[in-house]
Write a protein that binds this DNA or RNA. Structure first.
Length: 280
DNA sequence: GCGACAG
DNA sequence: ATCTTGTCGC
């Protein structure tokens, strides 16, 4: 599938909302289904909170009401279905084995938000946890947060800043790699687009379950992530992004671990992204 | 009562 | 992710 131009999800939403007949109502779930995936129900709700769609909010049923009479006969291109199949295609391109030269220079990226604006920061560190380079920038966002579709919201901001940093061997991303419903989370996608090895680091699981014994997280019968435990801190999860094995992910993440919960490059990138956003 | 979902 | 002060504890 070709993804030359980004999906204009809000225009699709507008198109769907306008189909609700005058005097009739619908539900967030039905609208999300029309967009191609019911998981987007909360994102639909969030969108209707915004000025642009405020006029349609009266067309939503109260949650306590029964939705049997909700308008559901929408005509839509179902954009989220398109995006989901795109992810499945991309998943096949992901390399889950080690395919990198050195691992001295580790970078971390993170993004901070404020309305329709994103501030992204990238920090590169060496094996001694010394900062080698860093950069940050601001860029508009045009896609909402929808569980499973984070890549479409965050990748543009990450690409925008990753280019402005000197060479790194490996990039750590806040979000899952292959530990994703369709095998291609943000970290994997960023790896494919930048053609760089990436590691996914996330605070909570999106899919999968930790095995009774050990630290492995299994999804559909395969190990897709590892739980990392640091004394005094809640656990977090690491998964293959692109061109690296899970074993190496764990090894590198533990090596870049300061005394905090998350790896230093990610912690610093997070601080920098927030700092930049708050000074605007 | 079920489900509860990266950032 | 973000909205948000003080407060408890190392």
């Amino acid at each position: 599938m070709l993804m030359d131009s980004p999906i204009k999800i809000y225009e699709h939403l507008l198109h769907v909302l306008e189909q609700i007949p005058r005097g009739k109502v619908s539900t967030y779930i039905k609208i999300a289904e029309a967009l191609g995936d019911p998981v987007a129900a909360k994102a639909v709700k969030d969108a209707l909170e915004r000025e642009r769609f405020a006029e349609f909010k009266t067309k939503i049923l109260e949650s306590a009401q029964r939705s049997s009479d909700a308008f559901t006969d929408f005509v839509s291109d179902r954009p989220l279905e398109l995006l989901a199949s795109y992810q499945m295609e991309q998943a096949e391109q992901v390399i889950r084995d080690d395919d990198f030269n050195g691992s001295d220079r580790i970078a971390g990226v993170d993004v901070s938000y404020q309305g329709d604006v994103a501030a992204s920061a990238c920090v590169v560190m060496d094996s001694d946890l010394e900062v080698i380079d860093s950069a940050s920038t601001v860029i508009p966002v045009s896609f909402p947060y929808i569980p499973g579709y984070l890549m479409f919201r965050e990748t543009p901001a990450i690409e925008a800043i990753a280019e402005h940093v000197s060479g790194f061997d490996l990039l750590m991303v806040n979000g899952h790699g292959i530990a994703h419903p369709r095998g291609c989370g943000l970290a994997s996608y960023v790896g494919l687009k930048l053609e760089q090895p990436t590691i996914g680091v996330a605070r909570t699981l999106l899919v999968g379950e930790k095995e009774e014994m050990g630290h492995s997280v299994k999804y559909n019968g395969e190990v897709v992530a590892a739980e990392i435990n640091r004394p005094g801190h809640p656990p977090f999860y690491v998964s293959t992004g692109h061109r690296i094995s899970l074993t190496s992910c764990v090894e590198i993440v533990e090596r870049m671990e300061g005394r905090r919960q998350l790896p230093e490059p990610l912690r610093l990138a997070h601080l920098e992204a927030r700092r930049l956003m708050r000074e605007l």
